[in-house]
Design a binder for these strands. Structure first.
Lengths: 224, 224
DNA sequence: ACAAAAGTGTTATCCATACACCCATGT
DNA sequence: ACATGGGTGTATGGATAACACTTTTGT
């Protein structure tokens, strides 16, 4: 045990959310541009101080909803970041979450609080406030690990998608090319998705069959 | 972002540590018996409030050192537990760590603060205070997952150990029997350990060769 | 007709698994 | 001499990886 100055502890708790999606063939994170000093103009993950009667998961859910309007996505605690100097304004411990979003149906909201809100490619981030660069890095690592033994990619795709779209998600996150036939055989054997019967037409090539995930919630399956 | 009542936030931060070892053929966790109400007599993980100028990892390191005297072990953040009602005394968010200890060279310290300190088999825990049962469960899951793709078992074994001891660690944590020859072939191919040249004698059977880990720090390797 | 992505099976290689006996020591 | 765990190699089967052509559409 550390000490017992319970009444004198003066540490604040924040919740930050790394929202991640795939756009233009690459992973992107949602960043807000800060208005207030000392980080004026810098970019950061959306977040804020925790309320007393609110669990961190609820706070993260609210941040997500406020920024993007979505609720039905994969959202999970990432880790807690607590370097003593991470916030120049004082000791603030941050419980970080990460969420996976489909690039569809997103409606970014700019609020009074921020100068700007936008998606940034994860490999070309601007300078970030606090330790948010590290938070994003750890989120990426977690995602890359976790798509290999769970079904969480459901949260990165629209409700209906083609097998090629699904394969691209894996290729982009794992940063390697996959064999089309082996990938499809694998996905088929896992029985995580089912055909909708529809096809995606309007492209200058053969229409692709559309599929959907049977369950849009976390399941453990050895994908690769 | 949640709200901006920064000055009014009244949430405390604690650090708790699940220290785990293998004794008598099973996983055990170190628990302390509480003296103070409202959990008087109940068992709990060692922990305490975080100090303002201290990172949580340092706090966890100190808890570990205080309880067991050891420092050179694997210690990692597990997760943050923050149910609003987890502590009847008020809102306390707990950053939980877990540590892996060898059953050797342990010197449990009972302090004034606790009625008792002892190892409890993980499958037969007493009633625990707070949400510590959940913390232990998550630690076990993490350990079982992580020994399969890292070298962290180094921290559960003495500096020098036999291949059979190493195999037992995996068998106990994964709860399944492994084939001796396949296991040894695998371990040998991974090149994580090296023979010390010594043997362990004094037993009513052929002496076993003693090995040690080449590196006593986290490395990522697909073990199984 | 051409371009572009969709869709589809087979073969070879590698890796995981199953399996049994002799060895060195203490009693 | 007997009991006990230590130590060792091979053969098989299943999973993974490599690989090319036909189909359907839009222009």
């Amino acid at each position: 045990m550390v000490k017992h100055h319970a009444s004198t502890q003066n540490i604040k708790i924040a919740v930050d959310a790394a929202m991640v999606t795939i756009r233009e063939g690459d992973l992107h994170a949602l960043l807000i541009q800060m208005k207030k000093s000392p980080f004026e103009g810098l970019w950061a993950l959306p977040g804020g101080l925790l309320e007393e009667d609110e669990p961190t998961l609820k706070a993260a859910t609210r941040i997500l909803k406020t920024q993007t309007g979505v609720t039905d996505v994969f959202l999970e605690q990432l880790a807690t970041f607590d370097d003593v100097d991470r916030d120049p304004a004082g000791r603030v411990v941050s419980v970080a979450y990460y969420a996976l979003l489909s690039d569809q149906n997103l409606d970014l909201k700019t609020t009074e609080k921020y100068s700007d809100v936008r998606w940034w490619p994860i490999r070309k981030l601007p300078t970030l406030a606090y330790d948010h660069k590290q938070v994003v890095q750890e989120a990426i690592q977690r995602i890359a690990a976790k798509i290999q033994y769970t079904n969480i990619v459901w949260s990165l795709l629209p409700k209906e998608f083609t097998l090629t779209q699904l394969q691209h998600v894996y290729e982009i996150i794992l940063r390697k090319n996959l064999d089309k036939r082996n990938f499809r055989k694998r996905i088929h054997d896992l029985k995580l998705i089912k055909p909708t019967g529809k096809t995606r037409t309007g492209m200058a090539h053969r229409p692709a069959a559309l599929y959907q995930f049977k369950h849009r919630k976390l399941e453990y399956v050895q994908v690769m």
